[in-house]
Design a protein around this nucleic acid. Structure first.
Length: 560
RNA sequence: UGAGCUAUGGUGUAAUGGUAACACUGCAGAUUCUGGAUCUGCCUUUCUAGGUUCGAAUCCUGGUAGCUCAACCA
């Protein structure tokens, strides 16, 4: 696995633009590279965050720097400890560890003092306008705004009012503290941005100590500065905020952190909007944040994705400044690549048809040696029982096969994986003409890859012995949505109109006995089917497996 | 229609004034006790019009297209 990681992460490639920024910084004498991953604890992390995590932690590691985890917890009504716990778990699972765990709320006192400083400089004022009035006077992107009637208040009055805001004298929404910049600025964020608002709410960390809370723009840059973040990476939509980020740091004359933006990750057949993901959970379209069809890290983990595969994926998608939509196929390629080398093989029949090997003695059980993973010699061997009656896949038999069909057909011969050659004799049907059973004969000389007369066979099929088969529930997942870009909605529709009705298909499958005592979270390749991971919903005697991803299937492709 | 950001194969990402390449996808073949894996080959690319230059994906100008911004969200 280490090796595997190296192939991707250590591969020779040119620098991405972020690495260039950092190398440029170092070339100019800069040191102590410091980054941070700054989630708001208001939801679960998704694959887009995984890209950001790999970037921030990866860059710090590559250049001998450090990366902090800082929760942007400036809005108590949306945030919760449930989310901070899940975020920490996800980051660790991905394989990263932060230098410092910090919260924007750790800096509330300092932020307050700096606000007082700005008031004293005449750079901030308390505005009594209502939310609606503020919105109405902000202007539009093409029209300038107009000054608030409270813009000219004296420093003394502002100081007094701001102190009383903090003291809790005013109800929510009564007043705000605004930076005094330029109501006609072409950048909307410079039109006297709000720095503080009154919210009488319990904060998950500071409790009831505060009833005024800083806005993102007033908190983020200064928090970066306090932590001496040298490179503050964020997504493209924040580029409009950068001048304001610089303005506060400049006015306060504090450590000059700098912000750089990169394009966020988009994936086909899903969406990254926290709002919409929350909607899927709340409307019970999915079973929860960790429903294996969700793009959240917790869901991907439950589905069977590995940390290494997600890191390799992040490396492969690269980083740049233009909008992108990554093909889901690349994510799937990344897990298959990892699981192919690490997951043990097992035989499982998903849609059975019974085969009776007529020349195999009744009551006899032969233990067949099977290779656990042909890609990993260290994985060893296991024994699988073979008996007179076995299950094979219904798809592996055709009464009237097309050309190039290598599997079983009347009179045809195939190899039972790891075991003998079998030839199909009789096809048993019920009254309504459905095939219920196949009668075959085996070649006792054909174990170990040979045959009694040197003949070769093209088809190899998997099988499970009937008396020892273990029943399990398989959850076959495909995309939650039926189109590549479910965010692109037509008139009068919503993304919920684009759900894929077959995103989850539950099946009863028959497994070889070795699978009976797999551990939750353990990953296997069900030979010729796909990669599966044992789910936490498993009950004693009733295992549940999630299909992580199918195997590449060039036969299915030919069929189309 | 104000400001900012971005334009390279089907999808991503490189090439940093000097032969447009790498990965995924797709197609074809070799090989194989997984129609898996592996290996080989192939298809397909610089938004547009000018300019600078011996030479432009790269620099300049205009155009076009896409994205972002008018929460007391982050």
């Amino acid at each position: 696995m280490e090796e595997n990681l190296k192939i991707v992460e250590g591969a020779e490639r040119s620098l991405n633009f972020m690495e260039e920024i950092i190398e440029d910084y170092i070339a100019k004498g800069g040191k102590d590279i410091q980054t941070r991953f700054p989630p708001e604890p208001n939801g679960y992390l998704h694959i887009g965050h995984a890209k950001s995590i790999c970037l921030n932690f990866g860059l710090a590691a590559k250049y001998g720097g450090k990366c902090n985890l800082r929760f942007d917890d400036t809005n108590p009504v949306k945030e919760d400890v449930e989310y901070v716990d899940s975020i920490k778990e996800d980051i660790k699972w991905l394989g990263f560890d932060w230098a410092l765990e910090r919260y924007a709320s750790d800096y509330f006192e300092q932020l307050y003092e700096w606000a007082v400083e700005l008031i004293k400089k005449g750079k901030a004022y308390v505005d009594d306008q209502t939310q609606e009035e503020i919105r109405a006077t902000r202007g539009t992107v093409t029209q300038p705004g107009t000054d608030s009637p409270w813009r000219g208040r004296s420093v003394e009055e502002n100081l007094d009012l701001f102190a009383r805001m903090r003291a809790g004298e005013f109800p929510d929404g009564a007043r705000v503290l605004r930076a005094k910049i330029d109501m006609a600025h072409s950048n909307m964020f410079f039109r006297d941005p709000i720095m503080y608002r009154i919210i009488h709410a319990h904060h998950h960390r500071t409790g009831d100590a505060w009833c005024i809370y800083p806005m993102y723009d007033y908190a983020h840059g200064q928090s970066d500065s306090i932590e001496r973040i040298t490179h503050s990476f964020c997504t493209l939509e924040f580029d409009v905020h950068r001048p304001l980020y610089d303005w506060f740091i400049g006015e306060l004359d504090i450590f000059p952190s700098h912000q750089y933006e990169f394009a966020r990750l988009n994936l086909t057949y899903t969406m990254m909007s926290k709002r919409k993901l929350l909607q899927l959970v709340q409307q019970k379209v999915v079973a929860g944040w960790d429903d294996p069809r969700m793009p959240t890290i917790t869901a991907l983990r439950r589905r069977g994705y590995t940390p290494a595969s997600l890191r390799a994926f992040a490396e492969r998608v690269g980083v740049a400044k233009r909008d992108n939509v990554i093909d889901l196929g690349l994510l799937e390629f990344s897990v298959r690549e990892d699981l192919n080398k690490t997951a043990q093989r097992r035989m499982v029949v998903t849609n059975p048809i019974k085969v009776v090997i007529t020349n195999f003695e009744e009551g006899r059980t032969e233990m067949i040696k099977c290779v656990n993973n042909p890609e990993d010699e260290g994985a060893g061997m296991r024994e699988v029982p073979l008996t007179r009656e076995i299950y094979i896949e219904r798809d592996d038999f055709m009464e009237d096969p097309p050309k190039k069909y290598y599997r079983l057909s009347p009179g045809g011969e195939v190899r039972l994986r790891y075991a003998y050659l079998v030839k199909c004799g009789e096809v048993i049907k019920n009254a309504s003409g459905e095939i219920v059973e196949l009668h075959c004969t085996y070649d006792p000389e054909s174990s170990g890859g040979g045959s009694s007369d040197g003949r070769k066979v093209k088809g190899v099929i998997h099988w499970v012995s009937v008396p020892t088969a273990v029943e399990a529930e398989a959850r076959l997942y495909s995309t939650l949505f039926d189109r590549e870009n479910p965010d692109d909605v037509e008139e009068g529709k919503t993304f919920l109109d684009y759900l894929n009705p077959e995103s989850l298909v539950v099946q009863t499958v028959y497994m070889e006995p070795a699978l009976a005592d797999a551990a939750v979270g353990e990953k296997f390749q069900f030979e010729r089917i796909g990669y599966f991971c044992k789910d936490k919903d498993s009950l004693p005697g009733k295992p549940v497996f999630n299909r992580t991803v199918t195997l590449k299937d060039s036969w299915a492709k030919m069929q189309k």
